[in-house]
Write a protein that binds this DNA or RNA. Sequence first.
DNA 1: GATGAATGAGTATTCATTCAT
DNA 2: TATGAATGAATACTCATTCAT
Lengths: 211, 211, 211, 211
Amino acid sequence: MGIQERKEREKERRRQQIMVAAKRVFSSKGFNKATMEDIAREAELSPGTLYLYFMNKDELYASLSLRILHYLKIRLEHVVQEKGLTPEQRITALQSALYDVYEFDPLILINMFHLQSSETLSNLSAELSTEIQRLSRSALRNIVKIFKDGIAQDAFIDEHPVAMADITWSLFSGVVLWETSKKLLNPKNDYLKTTLETAFKILRRGVRKSV
Amino acid sequence: MGIQERKEREKERRRQQIMVAAKRVFSSKGFNKATMEDIAREAELSPGTLYLYFMNKDELYASLSLRILHYLKIRLEHVVQEKGLTPEQRITALQSALYDVYEFDPLILINMFHLQSSETLSNLSAELSTEIQRLSRSALRNIVKIFKDGIAQDAFIDEHPVAMADITWSLFSGVVLWETSKKLLNPKNDYLKTTLETAFKILRRGVRKSV
Amino acid sequence: MGIQERKEREKERRRQQIMVAAKRVFSSKGFNKATMEDIAREAELSPGTLYLYFMNKDELYASLSLRILHYLKIRLEHVVQEKGLTPEQRITALQSALYDVYEFDPLILINMFHLQSSETLSNLSAELSTEIQRLSRSALRNIVKIFKDGIAQDAFIDEHPVAMADITWSLFSGVVLWETSKKLLNPKNDYLKTTLETAFKILRRGVRKSV
Amino acid sequence: MGIQERKEREKERRRQQIMVAAKRVFSSKGFNKATMEDIAREAELSPGTLYLYFMNKDELYASLSLRILHYLKIRLEHVVQEKGLTPEQRITALQSALYDVYEFDPLILINMFHLQSSETLSNLSAELSTEIQRLSRSALRNIVKIFKDGIAQDAFIDEHPVAMADITWSLFSGVVLWETSKKLLNPKNDYLKTTLETAFKILRRGVRKSV
DNA sequence: GATGAATGAGTATTCATTCAT
DNA sequence: TATGAATGAATACTCATTCAT
């Protein structure tokens, strides 16, 4: 391992350390109320150091989304590559993958949904912004593939598969947002998992080609 | 018309004037970047005057959500009261009502979805917060009714109708958020309406009781 | 009674109404935290009306001092005019008069002490400012007289009587301020009356010409 | 000197720098009209920096009182510890100590008297508020001791020594307030020192046990 | 006279970011 | 690299005062 590479690794480790701290702080205080000093304290670093690894607060925030998008990408690739599944089984696998993504980092996922249509995108470096879009697209493409295959195998109705992927993703994020908000107001309300199951059950029935 | 009533009306007109201005400013700048002074300027009033009609920035913001929730409530009541519709037709009517709500005020609707799982709820006056919840619940109850009736008439599968209502609402908000965010990144992407149609088509098929 | 005079009286009555309200509000909130609207509400008038009777907040505040200074003036005149008192008895009568002034309006008296060396004097109308000084001087002159007489009758030591009057007034206001502040911190501490008695006892002994 | 200690010193120096500036500004403009920006400018610092050393405006203000109370405490300890003084000489030493305190910082002392019965106490940190009370009490206790000793030595009349200490302190603060306010109105009036001397002369005579 | 809605100048405080060490 | 003290721009909110009715 060259010295260059070692440095690279060390730098990456630091980035991770900061992101872990940022995740905790953003999750508990929300983006606006979380201060850079909060994050620095949580990471046991000084505020100045954060700026050696991230251009600004927005970019630090966005990098968290990146992390979960990475995980999403990988999980969806697995779903598509899994062998021997019927199209409907593959949707079930997709559902399960999405739920894993939710569990990987529930609060960041929700923040990410916020980020998507928000005021923050303009502050990001072009690089980061591109990367986020690349990952999102890759994820969506894999979902599209599931529907395409289903249609090709005459298992699914012949709707536009891109739209069907969008709908699936919308359904997932909508349920997560809505159930989370209900739970915020009333912590006893924890039906996310069963609601998600019912949602996908309806989805599967809705796209299934009846004979 | 008594003098009391006239004043009441005048006051309500002022509130509307401010809300219209606030809507424009919040829509174009987002909540955080919009300043009270921006809104005052847009409303051709002084900053102080805003505080005669709204306790603080959060409350002004939330009152915009209230307005659209009122509209939602009324629209959904109509859907439920409409005579002579089959359960599936009623879902179609629901879809169309929801789309109207979206058109009534697209940006505020989206902001409201954001608001739901956000940091802002604590600053609201108890009164306003209660009102928001009351309207949301009333809206949901009407959607539940559609599914209950459908099940009672043996037209829909026998899933928990509350969950089905949640899913419908999630589907709607998810599609609106997702399509809007795609459109933000690429303004040519305007598939919201058709995506929503496909989504509800799948939904109707998904809940339909096959013979 | 001419119409002019009736108007004059009506106006004076209104001023009193406002001053009573102002006294309550200033006493409970202090000068800075009391708003003109608070006072208007307490007086069951509109804010604008206050400005028909008082030039501004400072002047309204100062007029309260005026009221207590009037009372002080009258009380001290009585002390000096009372017949057949020895010089020491007259100091006792003075003490009792001052205590009455304190009771006439405890909080305003304290506020008045504040006013005297404060930032507020410049805003007052020349008229009001002059009046306040006129009354203060008249009060002090009467105290001076007591000491002058005592010296003339060879009952008091031959110190500068103006200084002795200043000291008496200082002693009174100092005790009131100090005991009040102690009572603020610990409401059970209510020794003002007895402390004042001891103070004047010492004063009498201090100025008495020993044989 | 450790690095820790050096930092501590540097920090204390900064606090002093700010307090010196604050004193100037508060003295010339009064509490309400002095802005934090004024003070920052006077201290040649930015407004934000002030908040690194003081929680808020009230606390900065109160810290000035603290400074003079420290001085008072030390001066009174000396008076009590001084050897070989008769009780009356000790009162004279007390008078001279109090006058030193006045000269140490005339305007802040006066502000402190104002503060005592004012609206400001609630905003202070518990810590600061406690410290102020602790110092005040310590000061008073030493004055009490002088009178107790005088009584014990049969030099002073047998009045309650706590009351006598309160009266002494009241006399001092009353004279300072009153003479200062007279001087404000008429700058030629500068009799504070002689009035204070007369006041203490009367006090000494008043508490002296005549044979 | 009386009103009270509207004004708008005024300010304490926060916090992302920088930069000398 | 890392620090953390210093920065200073930015802003929600208040309230004495005015003036059209």
